[in-house]
Amino acid sequence: MSDGQSAVVPGRGRLRIPRRLPSGAVVYIGFVGIFLFFAVTLRDNGFLTIDNQLNVLRQTAFVSVMAFGTTFALSAGEIDLSIGQVVALTAMVTAVLLRDMNALVAVPAGLSVGVITGLTNGLLTTKLRVPSFLITLGMGGIIGGLSRWITNLQPVPVLDDNYTFVFGSGNIGPFPTLFVWTIAVLLVAHLVYRKTTFGRQLLATGGNRIAARYSGINTARIRIASLVICSVTASLAGLLYVGRLHSARYTLGETDLLTVIAAAVIGGTSMAGGRGSIMGALLGSLVMGVLNNGLILMGFSITEQDIARGVIIIVAVALSLREAPEG
C-alpha cells in the first residue's frame, strides 16, 4: 500500500464513523475492491507510485470538501445544485481581487460568495416553500451567468505565490496543502456533524421535519444553515482551484456537481435526509478519485471517461442505496 492510502485509513479508524455499519460497509469494500483492481491491472502503468497516489489526493480535494458540505444539505433534507457555479464565481471574484488588490481582501470576498448564495438559497427555500432543488437550480443559472459576465468569458491569471502556495499548490513536508485542507475541513465538519447540538438537530430535521418542529427545533434556521455550509464549502473549493491552477475560469467546477453528490451518497448519506456520514463522504470522493485516475491510466479518452464515469456513478450509487433501510 502506498503512503497516501495508509495516511487516510488510521484516521478513519480512530474517529470511528458510521453509526450504521451496513450502509457504511459498501463504501469500504468498494474502495478496497476498486483500489486492488487497479493495483493489479495497472501495476505497470504507475498506479501504485507515490506520485500517482499524491496526485489522486490532490485531485479529490475539491470534490471531498464539497461532498462534506453536501452531506450537511442532504442530511437536512435539502440539496444544493448550484455548487458548481459557486465554485466558478468564487474563483473569478477571488482572482480579480488578487490581481487588483490583495489576498486579505480576495479570500474573504471569495468566501462571501458562498455565504451570500447559501443564505439566499436557504431563505428562498424556507420562506417561499419551494423545494431547494428548484431554488438552487435557478440560482445556479444566475451565478453561472454572473461569473461569465464578470470577465467577459476571459480567464484571469493569478500571480500571487503566497496565495497559490497556501491554497492548493504548495507542500507542507510530504503533504500537499490540498491534502491538509481536506483533513482540516474533514475534522471540523465531522465534529460539527457528530458532536454538536446543531448536528443532532440537523439530522432530526432531515429525518422528520414535522416531528422536529414539534420538538421545538427551529427547522427553518437549520435548513438555511445547511445550505450556507454547503455553499461555503463550494467557495472553499473555488479558492483551492484558483490556487492549484494559478488562474480562474468560468468553467471551473462545471462538472463537479454529479461527482460530489455521488461521493456523498456512496458514502452513506441519504438523499431523503436524516442520515449521513462525513467520513463516508471522504471515502466516497476517494472512490470517485481513484476511479477517475484509473480510467485515465487505462488510456481512455476524455469522452470515453465521461461515459464510463456516468455508468460507474449510477452503479455505485445504486449499490450503496441497496443496503439503506427502507431504501
Binding site: T196, R200, L203, A204, G207, A211, Y214, S215, G216
Partner: peptide, 27 residues
C-alpha cells in the same frame, strides 16, 4: 409528528432537549 422512525431510541428521546446536554454547542 412524534418520531424520526429511522433514528435511535436515544436520539428520539433527546430530540427536544439536546441543548440541555451541551456545552458551547458540543453535546
Amino acid at each position: 409528528a412524534g418520531l424520526v422512525r429511522e433514528h435511535s431510541v436515544g436520539h428520539n428521546i433527546l430530540m427536544a432537549s439536546w441543548t440541555r446536554y451541551a456545552r458551547g454547542g458540543f453535546v
